[in-house]
Structure formats: C-alpha cells, structure tokens
C-alpha cells in the first residue's frame, strides 16, 4: 500500500517540483550567491543556509525521488578513470604545495570565481546538482 501511494506521488509531481518553477528559483538563488564576496560572513551563511535547506529536503520524504538502480553494471568502472586522473593531480598539487607554479584546482578556480557572472554560474551548477541529488 505504501509503495502504491509512492508511485502515485511520483507520477503526479507537485507544482513547485517542475523545472518551470525550480529553475527560476535556482537562478534567483544563484544570482544572489554570485554577488557575495569570498571569505565574507554573508557568503558563509548563505552557503550554509542553502546547503542546509537542501540537505533537510533530501533527508525527509517531502520531495519525490527518482528510483535508484539496485546494482551497477560493470561499465561503472569507467568512472574511476576521471576520478583517478583528478585525484592524482589534486593530490600532487596539494602535497607539493608550491603555489602558482603547480596550483591546486581551487587555486586555479579562485581568480575565475572573482567575476560575478562566473560566480553566479558556479552557484547555479552547485545548486542544480544539489537539487538533482535531493531528488535521487
């Protein structure tokens, strides 16, 4: 009976759970976030607040979730390739810690994120992916 009611919920998404609502909301949140400078109290509070709200939504059953696969196909090992390449370079740059001569990913991204448009775009990517995780 419980499973049946869940299926009905998934087939009839709530009004606020449609892209026509969620995308503009995420864009507005991203535009606000993009205006907040690094290392500011506002940026910290805004990140903690938006992330905390999404985690709260993701840990209770208020948002309908897409069904998750019960097992992964062997092709999933392909994901180890980009993860390993990224991990090797991030690990090497972090351990050697020689600054701009061999920069970490964060150090490379920081100057780009000073631009408000790039920062807002990064905010949108982070929030959209977070919203996607909440609904999985």
């Amino acid at each position: 009976m419980m499973d049946h009611s869940r299926e009905l919920t998934a087939e009839a998404p709530r009004a606020w759970d449609r892209p026509v609502v969620s995308v503009p909301v995420l864009i507005c949140l991203s535009l606000v976030g993009g205006q907040l400078p690094s290392f500011s109290a506002q940026a910290n509070l805004y990140t903690l607040g938006t992330g905390g709200a999404l985690i709260w939504l993701g840990l209770n059953n208020r948002v309908p979730r897409r069904p998750a696969p019960r097992r992964l196909t062997p092709g999933a090992v392909w994901w180890l390739l980009p993860v390993t390449v990224f991990g090797v370079f991030e690990g090497a740059t972090f351990v050697l810690s020689v600054g701009d001569d061999f920069p970490t990913f964060s150090r490379l991204a920081d100057p780009l994120l000073e631009d408000h448009l790039v920062r807002s775009t990064a905010w949108f990517a982070w929030l959209a992916a977070f919203w996607g995780l909440v609904r999985r």
Binding site: L36, S38, A43, T47, L48, I55, L113, A122, W123, W126
Partner: peptide, 9 residues
C-alpha cells in the same frame, strides 16, 4: 555541501 562552501564561500 563542503564542496560548495570550499569554492563559493
């Protein structure tokens, strides 16, 4: 959450 805080805050 940590990733967003790390890059955006």
């Amino acid at each position: 959450w940590w990733l967003g805080w790390h890059f955006l805050a």
